[in-house]
């Protein structure tokens, strides 16, 4: 069963545990600046929004890469960067419409979310379940359930 990261911004508190977990898995350091997932704070609105790669099926980054340094992991569906193949041309960073592929000034290659090989650290670290790793066929299941619950008689609505 393929799984996807599911993000529910309304549950996010902006604690950055996910950014630390991500950077620690990827670099061995607690370093939010190297995190593949980012939390955006919208101060005036009072909202926190996690954002990362959605692993497009027809991934722009993968198609744009001139040296085939971005490949599909068929077990997870993740588009992974082969760091030793990447030449740091940054074309993928331009191709990605969402900005989730980025260049690392220190390693001189690009980096993006690889779903940690199928066990994403961000989802495990999130204290509020704002980030979960769920059945890719049913990322909308909980939202459907919540809306379905609205049709219940008022006194029994316990979604």
């Amino acid at each position: 069963m393929l799984k996807s990261l599911q993000i529910e911004p309304e549950k996010c508190t902006g604690c950055l545990q996910c950014e630390m977990a991500c950077s620690y898995e990827a670099t061995g350091m607690f370093n939010p600046s190297k995190s593949r997932i980012k939390i955006f704070t919208f101060h005036e609105e009072g909202r926190f929004v996690p954002y990362t790669c959605t692993q497009c099926t027809e991934a722009w980054c993968m198609h744009a890469c001139p040296v085939e340094a971005i490949v599909i992991n068929h077990a997870t569906g993740a588009k992974e960067v082969l760091a030793d193949v990447c030449v740091g041309c940054k074309v993928c960073t331009i191709a990605c419409p969402f900005g989730t592929v980025n260049f690392d000034q220190e390693t001189h290659v690009v980096y993006k979310c690889d779903l940690c090989g199928g066990d994403p650290e961000c989802a495990k670290a999130c204290p509020t379940q704002a980030i979960t790793y769920v059945d890719a066929d049913h990322t909308g299941l909980e939202r459907m359930r919540a809306h379905a619950a609205k049709n219940l008689p008022h006194d029994s609505a316990k979604a």
Binding site: T13, C15, R47
Partner: peptide
């Protein structure tokens, strides 16, 4: 109260965000 908010690394998140 609009939402609660966390400081860095905090899994409690007691902060208040208000209008």
């Amino acid at each position: 109260l609009t939402t609660n908010a966390a400081c860095f690394g905090c899994t409690i998140a007691c902060g208040r965000i208000s209008t």
